[in-house]
Amino acid sequence: MLLIPCPYCGPRPELEFRNAGHAHIARATAADDQGWAETLFYRDNPKGVIAERWRHFSGCGRFFNALRDTVSDGFLASYRVGEPRPAAPPPIPEGEAPRIGAGEEPRP
């Protein structure tokens, strides 16, 4: 079970969250049919770092974005909706534990 860094609440167990797929998909309603199909369905599905959406469903209820390595499942960053994707974090040195749960302290 993952330990997911909610940017609002801090690290919490996966049971409290729902994954909501790839992040940063522009809703290109003006695109042609192929472009719209790509908005709806086509995905990078990367083997490596993914920017993905989570919702802290049984917590603060907020959607947020996170960077995660899909090979190790280690989280690299989490950030709020609307914030740009952080620059590619440095690769995790071999043998070092993935940095997880780097969330901020809960706010009042």
Binding site: M1, L2, E14, L15, R18, N19, N45, K47, I50, E52, R68, T70, V71, S72, D73
Partner: peptide, 13 residues
């Protein structure tokens, strides 16, 4: 599992 992964492992839950 609910998330994309190439790790060939999943959660106990």
């Amino acid at each position: 599992d609910s998330y994309i992964s190439y790790s060939q492992t999943g959660g106990l839950h």
